[in-house]
Design a protein around this nucleic acid. Structure first.
Lengths: 198, 198
DNA sequence: GCGGGCTGACTAAGCGCTTGCTTACCATGC
DNA sequence: GCATGGTAAGCAAGCGCTTAGTCAGCCCGC
């Protein structure tokens, strides 16, 4: 069993590097962040970064990969075990938006720093993003087929709903006007209205 | 009288620098762009940039300032001379979204590179963004007062509508599935539905 | 005693920006 | 018509510094 201390234990080096990198990339961008920023924030020498990652770009890729897989899992879980498309879309938007507000730091990195990736790594990320898109389109398709949604273009509406959620990561601030739950609830209504289901 | 040639004349140095900077900042980000990238693309030596701008950051600020003022003017023009809030919101969203699709390169810079600005310059940009926000909130307020819009939170809905339009700049591609006009028309419907007016 | 985690010292390359100077242009005086 | 003086734009070179990444060796848990 790992250390069970009363105060928060110091995470292992890999985790500390990941946390420091996410914070730095979100605040200053990939190119605005130095490897020294990351390693010293993680409490290590500059060279230690290269014990765990082959390059700064690979570190970004790892963060983006894990982050995207987490979101894909999130949206799949949101709609699982629900039959009604209205409830499916409501839950999906609520969970997606709440997550982008709560995790806006990480979400900023995985949505706005992708252009720093190599072509191969970018392609891998795009594949996961496509899978996320497929989940949303599936919900809309079923809603249209069931006659509870109406929209002139399912693809664009799916894109707009995801887009609305992603942009939460850009503007949301912890010390702001609303809690993640409040934003999530409001956006649920907006999304359902967008498909004519509210 | 300036040169009136048949083929497109070479723009003056300032304009060429601005164009090169927008393209480079949009593609690689502020910190990922070197002053040599910009000046050589503009057909000049590295030093020439400093004839026209005090620093790379001031060049970004100038681009952001002009770009934001253009958008503010755009939204004010959209709603001017219209009485009906429904038509006002429809026009505003259409114009705002079409512009963010057509000018997605410039829009990317002025929405996603602001963190590279100094505190003073960022504050100046935020002031313009506030003015844009006020225009949208005004339309929603009048629609709610007239009983043609319904929403639990005017502020958040105004933010969401702007957010939807801004994010177009992130995902829109020239060689993509839709023209700017098609996106604009669809988003007009989405926005009107969001306020319960369609 | 040994292997992975880590460091201090290092390099080659690249960065923003400056310097010293040249060129193109234009108004003015005669 | 044309020399004169002034100005702004531009360039080649390069300064001072920072960058991502390397490497020989040390430390410590097993």
């Amino acid at each position: 069993m790992p250390c069970v201390s009363e105060s928060t234990p110091v995470p292992d080096a890999r985790t500390r590097l990941a946390t420091a990198a996410v914070d730095a990339f979100a605040a200053r961008g990939f190119h605005g962040t130095t490897t020294r920023d990351i390693s010293t924030t993680a409490g290590m020498s500059p060279a230690a970064l290269y014990v765990h990652h082959r390059s700064k770009e690979e570190l970004l890729f790892e963060l983006a990969r894990v982050g995207h897989l987490r979101v894909l899992e999130l949206v799949r879980t949101s709609v699982a075990g629900i039959a009604d498309p209205v409830e499916q879309l409501g839950r999906l938007v609520e969970d997606f938006v709440r997550d982008h507000a709560e995790e806006h730091t990480g979400a900023r990195v995985i949505n706005y720093e992708l252009s720093a990736l190599t072509d191969e790594h970018l392609a891998a990320i795009r594949a996961i993003r496509h899978d996320i898109d497929v989940v949303v389109r599936g919900v809309l398709d079923r809603g249209v087929a069931a006659g509870v949604f109406s929209t002139p273009d399912v693809r664009m509406t799916a894109l707009a709903i995801l887009s609305l959620g992603i942009d939460v990561a850009r503007w949301y601030r912890d010390e702001g006007r609303w809690t993640p739950d409040q934003v999530a609830a409001h956006y649920r209504l907006l999304a359902l209205r967008m498909v004519g289901a509210a």
